[in-house]
Design a protein around this nucleic acid. Sequence first.
DNA 1: TTCCATTTCTTCTACTTTGTATAAATTAGC
DNA 2: GCTAATTTATACAAAGTAGAAGAAATGGAA
Lengths: 112, 112
Amino acid sequence: MPDRDFLGEFEQLVLLAVARLGGDGYGMSVRREIERRTGRAVSIGAVYATLDRLENKGYVASRTGAPTAERGGRAKRHFTVQPGGMRALRRTRRILTAMWKDLELGARTGSP
Amino acid sequence: MPDRDFLGEFEQLVLLAVARLGGDGYGMSVRREIERRTGRAVSIGAVYATLDRLENKGYVASRTGAPTAERGGRAKRHFTVQPGGMRALRRTRRILTAMWKDLELGARTGSP
DNA sequence: TTCCATTTCTTCTACTTTGTATAAATTAGC
DNA sequence: GCTAATTTATACAAAGTAGAAGAAATGGAA
């Protein structure tokens, strides 16, 4: 319904990571992906909180997978990006790209 | 000091607008620029709050200009992007661009 | 002229949503 | 029962938002 909204900073990162990971996206893997890409430490709570909020907005969906046969194998909660999430991602990119381009054209860096 | 930080969603928009407006960036013009580019209504309070935060982080600087000779021509508070702000902008763009590219390459949309 | 309505812009206040850290709980193997 | 891999819960800080209030300037009516 609120498909007019912009994405927050971290929401964007999480959504991008889930999209990238395809069917393999779950809390821990999303965290690793973001850390790998941004180089900053990400607390696991931040990831799940954001994932939950994105799910409430209908941007991602989750289902609980079967437990895997490995030590500590608690069932994972897998996430997938929904069409609305993809649209939000593209809209955000479109606007930012346009503004960046604008900036490069104007190119007033203070040193003419 | 916290030059490792990411930019929030609205912070990015505001910074981009200030950069684009060069010497002409002040509260109201920043608001207009963002509305023009994003098509969404922006409350003036949001703009100033964000501008203040960016100034505290050293990403922009402000100075009060001279009043102009026109009706309602009250003195404006002009903002300019600082080097750190430019760096933050570029860093944010770099990371997002890399992630978007990743996504396009991987291109797993759920239908293998 | 002297006010005051009007315009343009900034500041303040109060509140919601996002972002973050850390501890606790759950489930499986060893 | 200890340990590992995950998710949940809790609590708080930071960012985003709306709208009213305040300030400074002009222009025109009285």
